[in-house]
């Protein structure tokens, strides 16, 4: 039992962590929390099942196509739902526009793909053990993403430009950084990460349009716990959440697990709104 709690818990946790990172990457570039993070995760599963399972494309081709679709959707999100409302960010219209866009895609998926959960193909033709590929793939994806982002931010000028915009977009603009193009690029990057989460977690979570709401919420919990913009917080929070959920599921049942996560979420929001590791924000007069 303990193995399945750990393996399943860590794997689900890695998917949550990746969705949390997806939120963060979009937030850093635009100060916008976008509801499309869960949508990207959902689509990673559905598109993977479509390309590899239904259309029979080779795994690697299907994988690349899924990530490409994620990037394209990220770009469309920025153009359709974020850029038009950035000017009046204090009105929070982005909450509505990104929600509407995410719902559009979700409903389209429900209609074209169906509302039933469908199986996701096995990606690597090896036999399963207690620590199966459906468990280690999300963890591998999560580790690769963290390493990749770290290399991007620390080793490339583009990555530093992302950090600069996240810290002070006004100063970045004054320096002549192409803010709009960089924002677009980070939405594409977020699209790739979100799709990767859904793709590697596909076998476990299945190709199901309803994953969107679940991933939107459980992917946001680690961000709220770890502090917005903090990828380290998202990973620790995501893995902890996954383990806790599975342990509670096994030990005391699903009702308790669901309610406990919600109670912890609300309690942290009320007691430490800046996240367990974040710093307090300042006033606005």
């Amino acid at each position: 039992m303990i193995e399945s709690i750990v393996s399943y818990g860590l794997a689900v946790g890695a998917v949550y962590a990746l969705i949390g990172i997806t939120y963060n990457v979009m937030f850093s570039a635009s100060r916008v929390f976008s509801f499309t993070a869960g949508m990207l995760g959902m689509l990673g599963g559905v598109l993977g099942a479509l390309f590899i399972g239904k259309l029979g494309l080779p795994t690697i081709v299907g994988f690349v196509l899924v990530l490409a679709c994620g990037a394209v959707l990220g770009v469309i999100t920025e153009i359709v739902a974020v850029r038009p409302v950035l000017k009046s960010i204090e009105q929070h219209l982005y909450v509505l526009s990104t929600l509407a866009f995410a719902l559009l895609i979700q409903q389209f998926t429900a209609i074209e793909w169906g509302t039933e959960a469908q199986p996701f193909p096995r990606l690597i033709p090896i036999s399963s053990g207690w620590f199966d590929q459906q468990f280690w793939l999300p963890l591998l994806a999560c580790a690769a993403t963290i390493v990749g982002l770290e290399l991007l931010y620390r080793r490339t000028l583009v990555g530093r430009a992302f950090l600069a915009i996240a810290e002070d977009s006004y100063a970045a603009r004054a320096l002549g950084l192409p803010e709009q193009r960089l924002r677009l690029a980070s939405f594409a990057l977020a699209g790739i990460i979100g799709a990767l989460a859904g793709f590697t977690g596909g076998e476990m979570l299945l190709a199901f349009f309803g994953n969107q709401a679940i991933l939107s919420f459980y992917g946001f919990v680690p961000v709220a716990l770890g502090g917005m913009g903090s990828n380290r917080g998202a990973v620790i929070g995501g893995l902890a959440l996954g383990l806790f959920q599975q342990a509670a599921n096994f030990l005391v049942g699903g009702i308790f697990a669901a309610v406990a996560v919600f109670v912890v979420f609300i309690a942290v929001l009320l007691l430490r709104p800046e996240g367990l590791a974040g710093a307090a924000a300042s006033r606005r007069v």
Partner: peptide, 18 residues
């Protein structure tokens, strides 16, 4: 308003972005 999370050198490299 410099970028406090980056090194001095990186701050200057960014000024020459492109």
């Amino acid at each position: 308003r410099v970028f406090t999370q980056l090194t001095v050198f990186d701050n200057l490299l960014l000024a020459g972005y492109g």
